[in-house]
Design a protein around this nucleic acid. Sequence first.
DNA 1: TTGCTCCTCACGTCACGTGAGGTGGC
DNA 2: TTGCTCCTCACGTCACGTGAGGTGGC
Lengths: 284, 284
Amino acid sequence: MNIGEFARQGRVSVRMLRHYDALGLLPPAHVEPATGYRSYEVAQLARLNRIIALRDLGLSLRQISEILDERVDVEELRGMLRLRRAELAAAIAVDTSRLAQVEARLRTIETEGHMPETEVVVKSLPPMRLAELSAVAASFGPDDITPVIVPLYDELERRLAAAGVKATGPSLAYYEHATGTGGQVTSPAVGEGAVVVHAGCPVDLPLGNTLGFDVVDVPGVERAATVVHHGPVDTLMVSGQLLSRWVDANGYRPVGLPRELYLACPPDAPKEWVTELQEPITEA
Amino acid sequence: MNIGEFARQGRVSVRMLRHYDALGLLPPAHVEPATGYRSYEVAQLARLNRIIALRDLGLSLRQISEILDERVDVEELRGMLRLRRAELAAAIAVDTSRLAQVEARLRTIETEGHMPETEVVVKSLPPMRLAELSAVAASFGPDDITPVIVPLYDELERRLAAAGVKATGPSLAYYEHATGTGGQVTSPAVGEGAVVVHAGCPVDLPLGNTLGFDVVDVPGVERAATVVHHGPVDTLMVSGQLLSRWVDANGYRPVGLPRELYLACPPDAPKEWVTELQEPITEA
DNA sequence: TTGCTCCTCACGTCACGTGAGGTGGC
DNA sequence: TTGCTCCTCACGTCACGTGAGGTGGC
C-alpha cells in the first residue's frame, strides 16, 4: 500500500502519516531508497489504530510512543492515565465556568446593549506586613467610614514619618465586622453593624507595637474578586455594589475581610484616585 | 510605575506585559527613548483587567484587541460570544467523553493488568458502490455464514472476470437481518435469526443488474466503531464480540448494517487475513 | 562593587495544515 | 502530454516561558 491508500483506510491525512514517520511513531514497512516513496502493510493498521485511540484520549504523541514501544510499565501507565484523568476533570471545570461567564456576558448584552467597561477580575492576593492604626465606625456606609479613616491615615502618616519609616507600596485598608462571624470584637461598646476600620501601610518592620502603631501580618488570599475604581473615595460604593452583585451572580460567596488598596491618591486631585476593591471569595 | 510594579499589581508576568505591548494590546503610557524602559500608569490597570477578564473567557488576544478598540459592533460581539459558547460546549462534550474513556482504560488495567492490544476506533465510513451477490444464511454464526459467503465471492469473482470488470479496492461484505427492524425481507421463507449476506466488491459501474450481479450504493456512515482483525475468518467472532462489548460499554448503540472490509486476503495463507469489522453506531 | 531590574532577540512548545517547488509513473 | 501521487523543506498556528547576553541605577 502506498501512503495515500493507507491514509484512506486509516481515515487520517497523509501529512499525519509523514509526521508519525518523522517521530518514529509509525515508520512505513518499506521506503524506496531511490524515490523516498513510503509503503505500508495492512498489518500496520493495527498500530495506527492504537495511535488514534490513544490520541483520542488526549495523550501526547510522545506519551503514545512510550506506551506503544513498551517503555513504560503498568504502574507508570496507570500514573499517566490518572494524571490525564485529573487534567480532563480540571479542563472540564474550567470550561464549565467559562461557559457560565460567557452566558452571563450574553445576558448583559441583551439587557444593557454593551459590555461592561469595568471588569471584575478574580486573582490571588499576596500576604502583606502592615503598619496600621484602627478605629470603629458606626456602619459600612461611606458617611461613617470617611470621618474615621481619614484621620487614621493622617495620624499614621505622622507617626511613620516620626519613626523614619517608609511605606514599601500602596496603602491597604481592611474592614472587620465588630460583631458577628469572622471578626473579633475589638471594642465592647459598639452597636450592631459597626465595623473596625484598619488603616495600614506596607512596611518592612518586625511585628509588634513599639513605634506608636501596630505592625501586623495580613494573610494572603487564594481567591478574591477585585475591581479597580477610578474617582473620588465617596463614589467607592458604586464599584462596591458592582463587586457584590458580581460575586453573587457568579456563584461565589464573600469570605474573610474586604480590602481597599489605594493605588493612586494624589492629595490635591481626589477625582484621580485609583482604588482596588478586594473581596475574598469562595464557591458558594 | 515601572513594568515590574505594574505586573505585580496586575498579578501578571512581566513577559505578558511585553507581549501585550508587542501586539499593541496594552502599550505602556510612556517608553524612555534612551533605555527602552516601559512605564505604566495606574489607570492602565483598568485596561489590563479588561484584557484578563476577556482572556479568562477563552477569547484570543486578537479578538480581545478588536473588542477593546471597538472595532466590533454589538452584533458582532454577540456573534463572537455565541461562537465561543458553542466552542466551549463542544470542548466540554469532547472532554467528558475522553474522561469516560480514560476511566474505562483504568478499569481495564485494574482487571486485566495491561492495555488492550487491539483497539476499537470510531470513524466515519465513506459511501461505496459495490458489485454484489447476496444470499440468506440461517444465523449470524460463522458456521452458517462461511458456507454461504465463500461460494458467493467465488461466483462474484467469476462473473466480474467474465464481464472484464476490476475491483477498485478491498471487498466489503454486509449483513441484514432477514426479519426485524432495519432490513427488508428478501426471502419470505426464512426463519427467525436468519441474515441476508451481501458479498460485494467496489467497482466503477452504473447502478443496476445487467452483468449477472447487482450494482448498488452502500451509503456512508457518520460514525462506526471499527476493529482490525488479524487471522483466519473463523476467528472473526472474537473481534466481533470485543466490538459489541465495546459499543455497549462506551454508551453507544448499533444502528444500521454491520460490515466487514477484507483488507488483506492472501488466498493461500488464511492466517494472514486482515479484516476490518465495522459497526455503525449512535449514542445510546 | 554587588545585586536588582530592565532591555532585546530568539528558540521552544504541539500536532499538524498549507503552500512552494519539484519528480516519477500511467 | 496531462493528471495524479509522491517527495522534501519550511513557514504558520497561539500565548507566552525561558534562557542568552547585555545594560542602567542604587
